[in-house]
Simulated assay, not measured.
Amino acid sequence: MEEHHHLFQPLLSTTTTTSAATTTTNEDEDIKFLSSDKAISFRLLSITFIGLISIYANYEQSKGFDIIIINDIKDSLAGNRFELFYVSNDKATRILQNTSSFVENILYPDTITSTNHHKKQVRRVTLRLSSKNNQTRIVPTVDTPKCDEFVINISPSIIMGQSSNDNHAMVSAIQRGMARVWLWDGESRAPPWLVDGLVEYMSRLAGFGEVVRGFGDSSSWNDKDPRVVALHLDQCEENIKGFIRRLNQAMRQRWNDQTVVEARNLCDYYKKLYDSTAL
Protein backbone atom coordinates (compact mmCIF):
# COMPACT_ATOMS: atom_id res chain seq x y z
CA MET A 1 0.00 0.00 0.00
CA GLU A 2 2.85 2.38 0.84
CA GLU A 3 4.69 1.66 -2.44
CA HIS A 4 1.53 2.29 -4.41
CA HIS A 5 1.05 5.65 -2.69
CA HIS A 6 4.62 6.89 -3.52
CA LEU A 7 4.35 5.94 -7.20
CA PHE A 8 1.41 8.22 -7.76
CA GLN A 9 2.40 11.02 -5.38
CA PRO A 10 4.03 13.31 -8.01
CA LEU A 11 0.84 13.34 -10.08
CA LEU A 12 -1.38 14.40 -7.18
CA SER A 13 -1.71 17.72 -5.40
CA THR A 14 -0.85 18.07 -1.72
CA THR A 15 -4.48 18.65 -0.86
CA THR A 16 -5.54 15.53 -2.66
CA THR A 17 -2.83 13.52 -0.95
CA THR A 18 -3.89 14.76 2.45
CA SER A 19 -7.49 13.99 1.63
CA ALA A 20 -6.60 10.50 0.48
CA ALA A 21 -4.57 9.90 3.61
CA THR A 22 -7.40 11.21 5.74
CA THR A 23 -9.89 9.00 3.91
CA THR A 24 -7.65 5.99 4.40
CA THR A 25 -7.32 6.79 8.09
CA ASN A 26 -11.08 7.13 8.45
CA GLU A 27 -11.62 3.83 6.67
CA ASP A 28 -9.12 2.16 8.99
CA GLU A 29 -10.92 3.61 11.99
CA ASP A 30 -14.27 2.41 10.59
CA ILE A 31 -12.84 -1.07 10.11
CA LYS A 32 -11.46 -1.03 13.65
CA PHE A 33 -14.84 0.18 14.94
CA LEU A 34 -16.71 -2.53 13.05
CA SER A 35 -14.27 -5.16 14.28
CA SER A 36 -14.69 -3.93 17.83
CA ASP A 37 -18.48 -3.91 17.42
CA LYS A 38 -18.42 -7.47 16.10
CA ALA A 39 -16.23 -8.53 19.01
CA ILE A 40 -18.69 -7.02 21.50
CA SER A 41 -21.62 -8.68 19.73
CA PHE A 42 -19.80 -12.01 19.75
CA ARG A 43 -19.11 -11.66 23.46
CA LEU A 44 -22.75 -10.81 24.16
CA LEU A 45 -23.90 -13.79 22.12
CA SER A 46 -21.43 -16.01 23.97
CA ILE A 47 -22.68 -14.78 27.34
CA THR A 48 -26.28 -15.29 26.24
CA PHE A 49 -25.50 -18.79 24.98
CA ILE A 50 -23.76 -19.71 28.23
CA GLY A 51 -26.72 -18.29 30.15
CA LEU A 52 -29.15 -20.39 28.12
CA ILE A 53 -27.07 -23.49 28.76
CA SER A 54 -27.07 -22.71 32.47
CA ILE A 55 -30.84 -22.21 32.49
CA TYR A 56 -31.34 -25.47 30.62
CA ALA A 57 -29.03 -27.29 33.04
CA ASN A 58 -30.95 -25.88 35.99
CA TYR A 59 -34.20 -26.91 34.35
CA GLU A 60 -32.93 -30.44 33.83
CA GLN A 61 -31.77 -30.54 37.44
CA SER A 62 -35.12 -29.19 38.66
CA LYS A 63 -36.81 -32.27 37.25
CA GLY A 64 -35.29 -33.93 40.26
CA PHE A 65 -34.58 -37.52 39.31
CA ASP A 66 -34.18 -39.97 36.47
CA ILE A 67 -37.20 -42.11 35.58
CA ILE A 68 -37.01 -45.65 34.28
CA ILE A 69 -40.04 -47.72 33.26
CA ILE A 70 -39.68 -51.52 33.23
CA ASN A 71 -42.23 -54.07 32.04
CA ASP A 72 -41.37 -57.53 33.38
CA ILE A 73 -44.32 -59.23 31.68
CA LYS A 74 -44.45 -57.76 28.17
CA ASP A 75 -45.91 -60.91 26.61
CA SER A 76 -48.85 -61.11 29.03
CA LEU A 77 -52.21 -59.38 28.74
CA ALA A 78 -51.38 -57.09 31.68
CA GLY A 79 -47.99 -56.33 30.15
CA ASN A 80 -49.52 -55.44 26.80
CA ARG A 81 -52.05 -53.13 28.45
CA PHE A 82 -49.30 -51.47 30.48
CA GLU A 83 -47.19 -50.94 27.35
CA LEU A 84 -50.14 -49.54 25.39
CA PHE A 85 -51.74 -47.27 28.00
CA TYR A 86 -48.76 -46.13 30.09
CA VAL A 87 -45.43 -46.66 28.33
CA SER A 88 -45.93 -45.85 24.64
CA ASN A 89 -47.43 -42.42 25.42
CA ASP A 90 -45.18 -41.60 28.43
CA LYS A 91 -48.23 -41.53 30.68
CA ALA A 92 -46.44 -43.49 33.40
CA THR A 93 -43.65 -40.89 33.43
CA ARG A 94 -46.12 -38.02 33.76
CA ILE A 95 -47.93 -39.76 36.62
CA LEU A 96 -44.64 -40.27 38.43
CA GLN A 97 -43.72 -36.60 38.04
CA ASN A 98 -47.14 -35.32 39.15
CA THR A 99 -47.45 -37.60 42.18
CA SER A 100 -43.89 -36.78 43.18
CA SER A 101 -44.60 -33.04 43.06
CA PHE A 102 -47.68 -33.52 45.24
CA VAL A 103 -45.73 -35.38 47.93
CA GLU A 104 -42.78 -32.98 47.79
CA ASN A 105 -45.09 -30.01 48.36
CA ILE A 106 -46.38 -31.65 51.53
CA LEU A 107 -43.07 -32.77 53.00
CA TYR A 108 -40.67 -30.12 51.68
CA PRO A 109 -42.62 -26.95 50.81
CA ASP A 110 -39.95 -24.50 51.96
CA THR A 111 -36.74 -26.49 51.60
CA ILE A 112 -35.17 -23.82 49.39
CA THR A 113 -35.65 -21.03 51.93
CA SER A 114 -35.11 -23.05 55.08
CA THR A 115 -31.94 -24.75 56.28
CA ASN A 116 -33.91 -26.71 58.87
CA HIS A 117 -35.68 -28.91 56.34
CA HIS A 118 -33.35 -31.41 54.73
CA LYS A 119 -34.75 -32.83 51.53
CA LYS A 120 -34.28 -36.49 50.87
CA GLN A 121 -31.95 -37.23 47.98
CA VAL A 122 -33.74 -39.07 45.16
CA ARG A 123 -31.60 -39.64 42.07
CA ARG A 124 -33.55 -42.33 40.27
CA VAL A 125 -37.03 -43.84 40.43
CA THR A 126 -37.89 -47.01 38.55
CA LEU A 127 -41.51 -47.98 37.96
CA ARG A 128 -41.65 -51.72 37.42
CA LEU A 129 -44.66 -53.76 36.37
CA SER A 130 -43.83 -56.84 38.38
CA SER A 131 -44.52 -60.44 37.53
CA LYS A 132 -45.63 -60.95 41.13
CA ASN A 133 -49.34 -60.48 41.68
CA ASN A 134 -50.18 -58.52 44.82
CA GLN A 135 -53.81 -59.10 45.77
CA THR A 136 -53.90 -55.92 47.88
CA ARG A 137 -53.70 -54.20 44.48
CA ILE A 138 -53.29 -50.57 45.45
CA VAL A 139 -50.32 -50.99 47.78
CA PRO A 140 -47.03 -51.29 45.85
CA THR A 141 -43.73 -52.42 47.33
CA VAL A 142 -40.75 -50.07 47.19
CA ASP A 143 -37.21 -51.43 46.99
CA THR A 144 -34.05 -49.40 47.62
CA PRO A 145 -31.08 -50.85 45.71
CA LYS A 146 -29.07 -47.74 46.67
CA CYS A 147 -29.71 -44.96 49.16
CA ASP A 148 -30.86 -42.56 46.42
CA GLU A 149 -32.46 -45.07 44.04
CA PHE A 150 -35.95 -46.53 44.40
CA VAL A 151 -37.97 -49.17 42.59
CA ILE A 152 -41.79 -49.04 42.80
CA ASN A 153 -43.17 -52.50 42.05
CA ILE A 154 -46.68 -52.44 40.60
CA SER A 155 -48.86 -55.55 40.69
CA PRO A 156 -50.41 -56.81 37.40
CA SER A 157 -53.75 -56.90 39.22
CA ILE A 158 -53.79 -53.10 39.13
CA ILE A 159 -53.70 -53.11 35.34
CA MET A 160 -56.26 -55.89 34.98
CA GLY A 161 -58.64 -54.37 37.52
CA GLN A 162 -59.34 -51.18 35.59
CA SER A 163 -60.75 -50.24 32.22
CA SER A 164 -58.71 -48.62 29.45
CA ASN A 165 -60.04 -45.15 30.25
CA ASP A 166 -59.82 -45.44 34.03
CA ASN A 167 -56.38 -45.06 35.58
CA HIS A 168 -57.53 -44.35 39.14
CA ALA A 169 -55.99 -47.53 40.56
CA MET A 170 -52.68 -46.94 38.80
CA VAL A 171 -52.38 -43.33 39.96
CA SER A 172 -53.37 -44.34 43.49
CA ALA A 173 -50.68 -47.02 43.56
CA ILE A 174 -47.98 -44.73 42.20
CA GLN A 175 -49.06 -41.99 44.61
CA ARG A 176 -48.48 -44.35 47.53
CA GLY A 177 -45.19 -45.45 46.05
CA MET A 178 -43.91 -41.88 45.68
CA ALA A 179 -45.00 -41.06 49.23
CA ARG A 180 -42.87 -43.96 50.41
CA VAL A 181 -39.97 -42.77 48.27
CA TRP A 182 -39.89 -39.25 49.73
CA LEU A 183 -40.51 -40.12 53.37
CA TRP A 184 -37.56 -40.38 55.71
CA ASP A 185 -37.66 -43.63 57.65
CA GLY A 186 -35.16 -43.25 60.48
CA GLU A 187 -32.51 -45.15 58.52
CA SER A 188 -34.99 -48.02 57.97
CA ARG A 189 -35.74 -48.25 61.69
CA ALA A 190 -38.96 -46.22 61.95
CA PRO A 191 -42.05 -48.27 62.93
CA PRO A 192 -43.75 -49.69 59.82
CA TRP A 193 -47.16 -48.70 61.17
CA LEU A 194 -46.07 -45.05 61.29
CA VAL A 195 -44.59 -45.05 57.78
CA ASP A 196 -47.68 -46.80 56.39
CA GLY A 197 -49.90 -44.31 58.21
CA LEU A 198 -48.00 -41.37 56.69
CA VAL A 199 -48.31 -42.92 53.23
CA GLU A 200 -52.04 -43.37 53.74
CA TYR A 201 -52.39 -39.82 55.05
CA MET A 202 -50.80 -38.31 51.92
CA SER A 203 -52.74 -40.61 49.62
CA ARG A 204 -55.99 -39.45 51.18
CA LEU A 205 -54.97 -35.84 50.72
CA ALA A 206 -54.47 -36.64 47.05
CA GLY A 207 -58.05 -37.85 46.85
CA PHE A 208 -57.55 -41.61 47.11
CA GLY A 209 -59.75 -42.45 50.03
CA GLU A 210 -61.99 -40.68 52.51
CA VAL A 211 -60.36 -38.41 55.07
CA VAL A 212 -62.06 -39.31 58.35
CA ARG A 213 -62.37 -36.61 60.97
CA GLY A 214 -62.30 -37.03 64.74
CA PHE A 215 -60.01 -38.64 67.32
CA GLY A 216 -59.97 -42.20 68.51
CA ASP A 217 -58.15 -43.67 71.48
CA SER A 218 -54.48 -42.77 71.80
CA SER A 219 -53.69 -46.47 71.86
CA SER A 220 -54.72 -46.67 68.23
CA TRP A 221 -51.69 -44.55 67.29
CA ASN A 222 -49.79 -47.75 66.63
CA ASP A 223 -52.78 -49.56 65.17
CA LYS A 224 -51.91 -51.97 62.35
CA ASP A 225 -54.54 -50.36 60.15
CA PRO A 226 -52.84 -47.38 58.38
CA ARG A 227 -56.25 -45.72 57.97
CA VAL A 228 -56.52 -45.36 61.74
CA VAL A 229 -53.03 -43.90 61.99
CA ALA A 230 -53.80 -41.54 59.10
CA LEU A 231 -56.83 -40.31 61.03
CA HIS A 232 -54.61 -39.25 63.95
CA LEU A 233 -52.04 -37.68 61.68
CA ASP A 234 -54.74 -35.70 59.93
CA GLN A 235 -56.02 -34.31 63.21
CA CYS A 236 -52.51 -33.47 64.40
CA GLU A 237 -51.79 -31.55 61.20
CA GLU A 238 -55.14 -29.78 61.45
CA ASN A 239 -54.35 -28.54 64.95
CA ILE A 240 -50.59 -28.13 64.59
CA LYS A 241 -49.77 -26.74 61.17
CA GLY A 242 -46.58 -28.26 59.79
CA PHE A 243 -46.81 -31.29 62.10
CA ILE A 244 -46.37 -33.83 59.26
CA ARG A 245 -43.40 -31.96 57.84
CA ARG A 246 -41.68 -31.76 61.23
CA LEU A 247 -42.42 -35.41 61.96
CA ASN A 248 -40.82 -36.39 58.66
CA GLN A 249 -37.75 -34.32 59.51
CA ALA A 250 -37.55 -36.04 62.89
CA MET A 251 -37.39 -39.35 61.01
CA ARG A 252 -34.35 -38.24 58.99
CA GLN A 253 -31.78 -39.39 61.53
CA ARG A 254 -31.47 -42.80 63.12
CA TRP A 255 -34.87 -43.64 64.62
CA ASN A 256 -35.52 -42.87 68.26
CA ASP A 257 -38.68 -44.29 69.87
CA GLN A 258 -38.93 -41.11 71.91
CA THR A 259 -39.84 -39.22 68.73
CA VAL A 260 -43.18 -40.93 68.34
CA VAL A 261 -43.82 -40.71 72.09
CA GLU A 262 -43.39 -36.94 71.95
CA ALA A 263 -45.57 -36.72 68.85
CA ARG A 264 -48.26 -38.81 70.52
CA ASN A 265 -48.18 -36.69 73.69
CA LEU A 266 -48.47 -33.52 71.64
CA CYS A 267 -51.46 -34.89 69.76
CA ASP A 268 -53.06 -36.09 72.99
CA TYR A 269 -52.74 -32.55 74.33
CA TYR A 270 -54.58 -31.15 71.32
CA LYS A 271 -57.10 -33.98 71.54
CA LYS A 272 -58.08 -32.72 74.98
CA LEU A 273 -58.44 -29.20 73.63
CA TYR A 274 -60.50 -30.53 70.74
CA ASP A 275 -62.78 -32.48 73.10
CA SER A 276 -63.24 -29.50 75.44
CA THR A 277 -64.17 -27.12 72.64
CA ALA A 278 -66.55 -29.65 71.13
CA LEU A 279 -68.65 -29.75 74.31
Rank of each mutant, 00 (worst) to 15 (best):
E27Q: 03
E27I: 15
D30M: 11
F33D: 15
S35N: 10
S35A: 11
S36T: 08
D37F: 12
K38M: 12
A39Y: 09
S41A: 13
S46F: 10
S46Y: 03
T48E: 15
T48V: 09
T48H: 12
F49R: 05
F49C: 15
F49K: 11
F49I: 07
I53W: 13
I53S: 09
I53T: 12
I53C: 10
I55N: 12
I55P: 10
Y56K: 07
Y56R: 03
Y56Q: 12
A57H: 06
N58K: 13
Y59N: 11
Q61R: 15
S62T: 07
S62K: 05
S62R: 13
K63Q: 03
K63S: 04
G64N: 06
G64R: 05
F65T: 04
F65E: 05
D66E: 09
D66N: 02
D66A: 11
I67W: 09
I68M: 01
I69G: 13
I69M: 04
D72F: 01
K74V: 15
K74A: 14
K74E: 15
K74M: 13
K74C: 06
D75G: 01
S76K: 10
L77D: 06
L77R: 13
G79H: 05
N80W: 00
F82H: 00
E83F: 01
F85E: 14
Y86I: 01
V87M: 11
V87L: 03
V87F: 06
S88Y: 03
K91A: 08
A92I: 02
A92N: 07
T93P: 00
T93R: 07
R94D: 14
L96M: 11
Q97F: 14
N98I: 10
T99N: 05
T99M: 09
S101H: 02
S101G: 05
N105D: 03
I106W: 11
I106Q: 04
I106K: 13
L107S: 00
L107P: 01
L107A: 04
Y108E: 11
P109E: 13
S114Y: 04
S114M: 00
T115V: 08
N116Q: 13
H117W: 06
H118W: 01
H118A: 10
H118G: 02
V122W: 00
T126Q: 00
L127F: 05
R128A: 08
S130E: 03
S130M: 00
K132L: 02
N133L: 05
N133H: 06
N134T: 07
N134C: 10
I138R: 07
I138S: 12
V139H: 02
V139A: 01
D143T: 11
D143E: 14
P145G: 02
P145S: 04
D148A: 09
D148V: 08
D148L: 04
V151R: 07
I152E: 02
I152Q: 02
N153F: 00
I154R: 03
I154A: 00
I154M: 01
S155N: 03
P156C: 09
I158Y: 04
